[in-house]
Design a protein around this nucleic acid. Structure first.
Length: 414
RNA sequence: CGGGGUGUAGCGCAGCUCGGUAGCGCGCGCCGUUCGGGACGGCGAGGUCAUGGGUUCAAAUCCCGUCACCCCGACCA
């Protein structure tokens, strides 16, 4: 991608009404555009990040035999009335509207009920189980107050997965597979070290659910952490979980976190009320066991920006950076230009993504933009280096800079 | 939803107290000099002063309403 052709541009000042670090940096760097409070559009660079996060999640969900689908945003009132969750008293974040014929409908803030309803049509026998489906969906929630930039909006992208099983044991086993898959996801996203599987409040079938909480000052949750034993507990279930795990309050460290994922065992709670039954091997009708598993895709993006940026801008991990290399061409000298073009082509042909700064700007502006946008590596080609055909290689995260031959560069990027 | 604050050019801001035809910086366009850390000079474009009403000879400025946005709190399946 050539910066000369990219329609977005960087700006020095963030909008005054944007306070959160993630939104300030993402807006300044041209990754997102604010449509209204809590509602952000994703521009070319931001979309690339979203797509990469999705792809990592997709690979890990596919690896545990889940199948990707897309449910709908428009949802039927009747489905939600089955579990009582159409009620504004119970769910206060509904966006509701109506069809031209005045049929009341809701805009999807979650998809548990619709998914269960949909699966009723396909699950009749124990032979149809287990089944796991997931989707990337734009969730719409009428939050009273949006805040923290893209970390808590009224419209956001979430990966939600649902699994149905013929027994509690089978669900447990899958639930544990999902925990491991989630750990791999957060490791690959570059926040694994600070992300903890956390005890949170459960439901009718289990004492606890599990949240994936990432240490982050901009987060909204507080958890209690035992780093040595790798135990994390949400404050809402602190007493119960401490008893369960045999730890005391003074062994635990209080930290601020952002919830980047959660998994929940519904047992047969929802399938009972919604009537999702299958025929077991003895010919009896029984309710299926349901698990649900979420990851906030756009929230994770915000958390990564919050955690990994520095005073100069964003620092993307390799795995989700819009491009691996920010290629800077300094000056309009023919030889330099040709060299930069050739390197752009060479790297691109090798499958290395390059953001090529071919704009006619001064060095300072290009370097400042490179740092703001946060590609993992910067490669500079200039008059000064052209004599011996070398390039400058700089690591965004550490700032370490060295002059390399092309072969050395390729080795670094390989 | 309670409390507080802010709306003036694409972005950041001044002007409002004390009414008199709207200004600065960045960005943008053209010309020239510059060119490895956000250059400099010259010329130029760009504004229903959030919005509706009121007061007045005259409103960005004063009064009333509305909307939007931000912060704190509450809320967060």
């Amino acid at each position: 991608m050539r910066l000369s052709e990219l329609f977005t541009k960087t700006v020095r000042n963030a909008p005054a009404d944007e306070v959160s670090k993630n939104a300030q940096l993402l807006i300044r760097a041209g990754f997102v555009y604010k449509e209204m409070a809590g509602v952000y559009a994703y521009l070319p660079l931001g979309l690339r990040v979203i797509d990469k996060i999705k792809q990592i999640v997709r690979e890990e969900m596919n690896a545990i035999n889940s199948q990707e689908i897309i449910m709908t945003s428009l949802q039927r009132k009747e489905i939600w009335e089955q579990t009582g969750r159409w009620d504004d008293e119970l769910v206060d974040i509904w966006f509701k509207t109506q069809l031209k014929d005045e049929t009341e409908i809701g805009l999807g803030w979650s998809h548990e009920e619709p998914i269960v309803e949909m699966l009723k049509q396909y699950v009749q026998s124990y032979k149809d189980l287990p089944v796991s489906v997931y989707q990337f969906q734009t969730k719409l929630r009428n939050e009273l107050r949006a805040k923290s930039g893209i970390m808590r909006g009224r419209e956001f992208v979430m990966k939600d997965m649902y699994s149905l099983h013929s027994s509690a044991e089978d669900l447990d086993s899958y639930y544990n597979q999902a925990i491991e898959a989630y750990k791999r996801v957060f490791n690959r996203l570059g926040i694994g070290d600070d992300t903890y599987v956390t005890f949170a409040s459960g439901g009718a079938f289990t004492k606890f659910s599990h949240e994936f909480q990432t240490i982050c000052d901009a987060g909204e949750d507080v958890i209690y952490l035992h780093r040595g034993r790798n135990i994390a507990i949400n404050e809402e279930v602190l007493d119960d979980a401490m008893a369960e795990m045999g730890v005391t309050r003074d062994e635990l460290e209080e930290v601020k976190t952002a919830e980047v994922g959660n998994i929940f065992n519904f047992g047969t709670d929802k399938t009972d009320t919604m009537g999702l039954k299958f025929t077991d091997s003895e010919g009896k009708q029984v309710s299926a066991y349901l698990g649900s598993y979420g990851i906030g895709i756009t929230r994770v993006m915000g958390v990564v920006v919050e955690k990994l940026s520095d005073d100069k801008g964003i620092v993307w991990p390799d795995s989700i950076a819009p491009a691996k290399v920010f290629l800077v061409q300094l000056g309009e000298n023919e030889a330099v230009k040709n060299h930069a073009e050739a390197l752009y082509k060479l790297l691109s042909d090798k499958g290395i993504e390059v953001l090529y700064d071919d704009r006619d700007l001064r060095a300072g502006q290009k370097f400042a933009d490179a740092e703001l946008m946060g590609m993992p590596y910067r490669v500079t080609i200039s008059d000064r280096l052209e004599a011996d055909g070398k390039v400058e290689f700089s690591v965004r995260k550490t700032g370490v800079t060295e002059v390399l031959t092309q072969d050395e560069l390729l080795a670094k990027l390989g």
